[in-house]
Design a binder for these strands. Structure first.
Lengths: 346, 346
DNA sequence: AGGGGGTATGTAAACGTTTACAAGTGCAGC
DNA sequence: GCTGCACTTGTAAACGTTTACATACCCCCT
């Protein structure tokens, strides 16, 4: 009943040319005379022909897809980055396979089959916690697809990287609070061994020192970027006899979790404690109170990473490590809203 | 320099068998004697062979990928659904291509190339606002890939569907508010022509009527599911001389946008107005105040949709419309938190 | 007239699998 | 000893493109 879909052969037949000419009309039109080109297009219309991308990819020895490894798809932080990536990748004819790398069990990372089967021409890694071996020993050595990091990265893997000025972001947060008169400033960090956590903690410490403010170990709480861990930090804050009057957070979600938990216990923000986030998620502007935070250009991060990968895929493997690997760092900005306020009282 | 990746030929050579035997060892091991099987596996290890999925797909005339059409990737509502889909799809060896269908310009929907080129074996549609033609006329008639709807759907396209009990959800919200003594209950809906908007509005109206409560047209506000539209509804609420004392929303984001905008103008929830959302996003539990809402089993929706699609892909096209198309509707539940309170005063 | 350089096309061999078909073996039943 | 069957394996033809190479033609120059 259901006929085979028309192939390039059928088009060639209909147009009275060879399959080579049809193929050329499609992928290198300048090689084909205008008259022929037109009759080919006409034949394509007639037959309802659609290019079979699988066949093209087989012949060209590439897959036409890239994979992006996301630590946690449920985290709204990544959505914009993903659309940035998808935007430039689909412009360039690539499919984007999105993979959540969150481990199913603590020590077993889930790597989908297509990954080990090197079904992708390239890789964008948003997860800096993946094991080095996992990332490098997949597939045969020569089949290692080009890879770039975005947001997070792994220190001892030398690959192009796009990130954000984390230290500057932390500094902006601290300076803002200092300008409001706060002198006891705490910090809620991400997972202790995460590169972002480290960069932001260090940035916070340095800015505190530069402002001549104390940097007490008992004022920095460890979290894991999630809402829940913000709530946990709030419990610690409330339990502490000697609290900071303001805290900076390494993510908006922790900031919101922190504020909500405080609210539950009748502690009000910013009246009793000022809070600044990091990320500027959409919801930040619509939180209660609207969240003062550090804005990250998320779509730009995605677009930049995609462009970097495109470039790396285009350069032949032997040239890839000629020059130092590119690193772009994008600017951040403080967005003042209502979760921060001048220190009350003298 | 870089040798070709080992192919099935190299394995066959190393194991002293034919390529057919290697192929069978991989995709139909029961046809191969145990001795041979073992030597093939040994040869695979030796050579570092990886299956080339592109070649397999070409030969098998399928792509090994499914696409999912999401109205808006930035909406955190979809993330869990996507992981549910990805979970069962990757278990079954399929890649998942995620596509944001949000129009770039008002009347031009963005359909990535791979879609029109039917590079997918199946389709999960989460967007009920797509045009009928767009969805049905892609590709040649016989190449139409199996399709299922999830969450949203299009009335006059008969396809399997998994949805949620929207009327029940709306009813639960209204009953909860009524039980708290509210008699003036409003509603913030989604885009007017969206199927969910319609179902939830109708459910609200019916529940109101069943409870003997008024259902005033000026108490229902039109939104579009976004935070911003919730804020806009708040402006209308505040401007109204004769306000409802409680509102139900067709999405959590609108509920939060509503509350935040009220907060900005000094109106407090739930003291002055009770609010119930719909979705139960992660953030709902950590909002200020924590949001009373209707829980949707989002991961289950994704998993169910994926399983339906798998089944539909497995049944030959001519059998596909034998029986009535399956429809599963999953249950919802009210989650009471702090954004609703008994009506103050008599 | 012969040669050189484009330009436009065709021929046919890949790309790496899967699978219909054929063929070989061993064994049971007669 | 022959037939038939079950089980393994091999042979070779697809799947639908792209592309190196060959060819044909036209035009211009000497």
């Amino acid at each position: 009943m259901t006929r085979r879909a028309p192939s390039i052969r059928d088009v060639a037949l209909a147009a009275g040319v060879s399959t080579a000419t049809v193929s050329r009309t499609l992928s290198a039109p300048e090689l084909v005379s205008e008259k022929t080109r037109e009759s080919v297009f006409e034949a394509i219309r007639e037959t309802g022909y659609r290019l079979n991308v699988t066949a093209r990819n087989l012949r060209r020895r590439k897959t036409g897809a890239i994979a992006v490894l996301v630590p946690n798809l449920s985290n709204p932080f990544f959505s914009r980055i993903l659309s940035g990536i998808a935007e430039v990748m689909s412009e360039n004819g690539f499919n984007v396979l999105i993979t959540d790398t969150s481990p199913l069990s603590p020590d077993e990372h889930r790597f989908p089959e297509y990954f080990s089967l090197n079904q992708t021409d390239g890789l964008i890694v948003l997860d800096g916690m993946l094991s080095r071996d996992l990332l490098l020993n997949r597939g045969a050595p020569e089949s290692r697809a080009p890879m770039v990091f975005a947001c997070e990265w792994i220190e001892d893997i030398a690959r192009p990287r796009v990130s954000v000025d984390n230290r500057e972001g932390s500094a902006l947060a601290v300076q803002h609070l200092a300008a409001l008169g706060h002198r006891r400033i705490g910090h809620i960090g991400g997972p202790p061994d995460n590169v972002l956590t480290i960069a932001r903690k260090q940035g916070t410490r340095d800015a505190l020192q530069a402002a001549g403010l104390p940097c007490r170990a008992e004022w920095v709480y460890d979290g894991d970027f999630t809402l829940q861990s913000g709530a946990t930090a709030a419990a610690h804050w409330m339990a502490s006899p000697d609290r900071p009057t303001a805290v900076t957070c390494a993510s908006d979600e922790m900031a919101m979790g922190f504020i909500a938990e405080l609210y539950r216990h009748g502690v009000s923000v910013p009246a009793e404690v000022s809070v600044v986030g990091f990320d500027d998620l959409e919801i930040a502007a619509h939180f209660v109170p609207p969240l003062t935070t550090i804005h990250q250009p998320r779509a730009d991060i995605g677009r930049a990473a995609a462009r970097m990968l495109l470039e790396r895929m285009a350069t032949p493997p032997q040239d890839r490590n000629r020059e130092p690997v590119p690193q772009v760092v994008l600017p951040v900005a403080l967005v003042e809203r209502l979760s921060t306020a001048p220190l009350a009282g003298p």
